[in-house]
Design a protein around this nucleic acid. Structure first.
Lengths: 145, 145
DNA sequence: CAAATATAATTGATATATCACTTATATGCA
DNA sequence: TGCATATAAGTGATATATCAATTATATTTG
């Protein structure tokens, strides 16, 4: 087997883990007790009123079981409100609480800055290339899987 | 906040998750009950006799607590043998059992094929570019973190 | 040498990932 | 209408990630 360190998958893992660590640290350092995944889910819900958990799971690229549990936590921590959907009783209406909205508003600039800092020195063309290649890999894994 | 789906980090997450899913499925389909992380750790140990858990954690880009637990599992499942190190009693000597060696030998061609298939259609130049850009992102996150 | 410090590994707590299975409800079709 | 099937979400089991604190041992230094 080729040495794992020499494969591109190692670099991909390394970069995304570095980013997650970096992003989480900057949020914690500002005094917010929320994970980047939780923030991501809050953002998706706020931007897509009426969204189903299934659709959140697709957008966040997470398993629906994970979404169930993250939402549970978000409700427990009072970031999120969950009401039954009157039209489809299998579903729930998710909405941010005032505290959730407030927190999201405050962490958004941190998240934006994190992203900006992480890609500093990478040109627009490089970003396009990077995106295209990654999408090619994703497509390979999906079609062959 | 910019839409998460439009950031490069989304593409990175998407590609690495697709790859992991694809790779794991192909190993399971061949009848092996081992995770790709466990296989990775076995490979690192086999290729680096006498390696410490600390060093494994650095190479596998995993937290040392994760390594402790993965190794625990590998021992429990009889893939790995763990003896006290006579020179430094804080450390352990890790080595693959016959079953571990055998399993690794058998999954290696699958792993190689997985990697090959996942990057099909990506040129050598593109791979170099991809690697360089990812390393730039990693470096940004580390130096700014 | 003894105390301070550093290092290797473990543990506990919490969060997330993934799979398979289940439950509840909705929808489509005979 | 009534049953088969599809869909939304939850649950249980297991694996992994991360942080902080702890334990055991080694090394450094006064």
């Amino acid at each position: 087997m080729a040495k794992p360190e020499q494969t591109i998958f190692y670099n991909i893992e390394e970069s995304i883990k570095s980013y997650r660590q970096f992003a989480q640290k900057n949020i914690n350092d500002e005094g917010y007790d929320i994970t980047i995944d939780q923030g991501l889910i809050l953002n998706i819900i706020q931007e897509n009123p009426g969204i189903s958990q299934k659709e959140i799971s697709r957008r966040a690229f997470k398993d629906h079981a994970s979404i169930t549990r993250i939402i549970e936590l978000l409700v427990k921590r009072d970031f999120l409100k969950r009401d039954f959907n009157s039209e489809d009783r299998r579903r729930f209406d998710l909405s941010l609480t005032e505290f959730g909205k407030d927190t999201l508003t405050k962490i958004e600039p941190i998240v934006d800055l994190n992203r900006k800092n992480a890609i500093e020195g990478v040109s627009v063309e490089e970003m396009e290339l990077l995106k295209n290649i990654l999408q090619k890999i994703t497509a390979n894994c999906r079609t062959k899987g």
